[in-house]
Amino acid sequence: MSAADDHGAVVLAQLMAQAQMRGADVATLRAIAEEAGELGATRAMARLGLSDERAAGDVAELRELLTAWRAAKRSVWRGLLGWVVRMVWALVLVGLAVRLGFGEWVR
């Protein structure tokens, strides 16, 4: 939970306590808080364009795309590392060949 969430929870608890001292019961206050949360979440989803019936599919598709992107990045790095290792080994073998005099066989 972020600091803003912590602050919001504290403020909500303080307001509920204040309302209870003034005569409102806790069940009613909790129901109001829950409805306010639902309304806020619904508004936020609408602002993000995720309030229609296709939203769940869109989010699932975005998650698949992100998973594929991560897999592609991982493959690129592994491929690059493999290529670098092969180049290093090739240089080591060429160096050994030159050092051991195998260069004379080529001529």
Rank of each mutant, 00 (worst) to 15 (best):
V88M: 09
R63K: 10
L66T: 12
F102P: 01
A17M: 02
W83Y: 11
L80I: 06
A33K: 05
A33D: 08
V84Q: 13
A44C: 04
M87R: 14
L96W: 08
T28R: 07
G57A: 14
F102S: 03
R78G: 02
R99L: 05
V94C: 08
G82I: 05
A4N: 08
V98T: 10
A46H: 10
W83M: 15
V76E: 15
R70H: 02
R107Q: 05
Q14D: 09
A4D: 12
A27V: 11
M87K: 11
T67W: 00
E34W: 03
A55Y: 04
R70M: 01
G79I: 01
L80C: 07
A9H: 06
L48P: 14
A24C: 02
F102E: 11
R78C: 01
M45S: 12
F102M: 09
V84F: 09
W69M: 10
A68G: 02
Q14N: 06
L91N: 10
R99K: 06
G95E: 04
G8S: 11
E38T: 12
R43N: 09
A90I: 12
G57I: 03
L48S: 15
L93W: 10
V94T: 11
A72G: 02
R47T: 13
A90L: 15
M1C: 06
V76Q: 10
L96D: 05
E34F: 01
S75F: 00
Q14A: 09
R47G: 14
A33Y: 00
L93T: 13
L12P: 00
V92T: 13
L96P: 00
E35V: 07
S75V: 04
V88D: 09
G82C: 07
A19N: 06
R47H: 08
K73L: 04
V26N: 07
L96N: 03
R43K: 09
G49W: 06
M16D: 02
D52Y: 08
A46W: 02
A41H: 06
L96S: 08
L65F: 05
V85I: 14
A72M: 05
R99C: 00
R30H: 09
L50F: 15
L65S: 08
T67F: 00
W89A: 15
L81Y: 07
G23M: 03
A13W: 01
G23I: 04
G82Y: 01
S51N: 15
A55H: 09
W83I: 15
V26G: 00
W77Y: 06
